[in-house]
Amino acid sequence: MNILISNSSGEPIYAQIVAQIRQSIIQGELEAGAALPSIRQLAKNLQISVITTKRAYEELEREGLIDSMVGKGSFVSGINREFIREQRLKALEAKLAEAAEESRALQIGRDELLHMLSMIYEGEES
């Protein structure tokens, strides 16, 4: 897993960590039960505050993506495969809704939109 912190993005550092770890989990790069670096180790690696990494882990825990055990560290939680898929589906629907909205605004018909989508879909497949 890679975590890259941008100092110029304006997004709080803890939020960047949350987004990137979440991404790694959703993409399956981090599997259920995988150990995450300790809070202090991650802070050291990123040369950032311990409090910032702690906050990121707390946020991930709240989202149900990781479990933290005192003295043992933090692990990717196992029960959420389905939950994550649902989340991703929701995100996909939102994006599609946005695309549909934009199409209406540009007066692009349903068929044309579907055609565009299938072109893009196949284009990426090939």
Partner: peptide, 8 residues
């Protein structure tokens, strides 16, 4: 304060 709080 914590640095994060200060910055936010």
């Amino acid at each position: 304060e914590t640095k994060d709080d200060v910055l936010e």
